[in-house]
Design a protein around this nucleic acid. Structure first.
Lengths: 107, 107
DNA sequence: ATTATAAGACACCAAAAGGTGTCGTGTCAA
DNA sequence: TTGACACGACACCTTTTGGTGTCTTATAAT
């Protein structure tokens, strides 16, 4: 599960529902330590920690040590890549809607 | 690799770079049979076929039998879900830009 | 009628993913 | 200064993933 390859693909990081939930939780607050994040899930601390480190590898999350705890913070910037990618396909579903309209008008 | 669970998560389907390349190839043409798609990749026909069936499970691709070949066609509609999801986070990177602007103006 | 092609359906395999539990270390509190 | 806590680092396990090759069937071409 863990990957040393420093930079992880943002699509891959976001593919897991647990990790999307993590991003959402972090979107609501400034920063949060691991033990507080863990209570939102039905899995152990270690698992959540691993998911966070995957998000960290994708630069979607920034970790900061404060005393004995590690606070995690959202960094949404890498999501731009997904936004740009998906916007390319926007034309394709709009096109289909136009075709549908044409069909309806013909009748 | 194959999954019978009919409906596959669109995030998951799109996480693989091979499958994103497949979508891009299908975006350029109307429809394409498997053996023509395969030449774009450095893997066997079976592997490409499996990727296509994963995309099909996510409804990102529609298959249509014509004679002895199966023609594949793009269906971009399920990508709306990703677009909606990612647009939620748009505010977060815009926010960061605003903060940067403020910092620059202060100087 | 025979041969070649397209592709689905398997069986199979190595590697990665997603969990678990345990141990060790640094930090805070009593 | 002695516990309790936070959490990283492992070792470990099972399931999924992404590829392979082979077999079979349906269709097309000669």
């Amino acid at each position: 599960m863990n990957d040393n390859s420093q930079v992880r693909d943002v699509y891959d990081a976001v593919a897991d529902p647990t990790r999307r939930k993590l991003l959402q939780i972090l979107a609501d607050v400034d920063e949060l330590p691991l033990y507080e994040i863990t209570v939102h899930f039905e899995m152990g601390r270690t698992a959540v920690s691993k998911h966070l480190s995957i998000l960290k590898d994708a630069d979607l999350v920034v970790a900061r040590k404060v005393g004995r705890e590690t606070r995690y913070r959202l960094n949404a910037n890498p999501l731009k890549e997904i936004r740009d990618w998906v916007s390319f396909y926007e034309g394709f579903w709009k096109e289909r809607i136009d075709k549908l309209k044409l069909l309806l008008e013909e009748e």
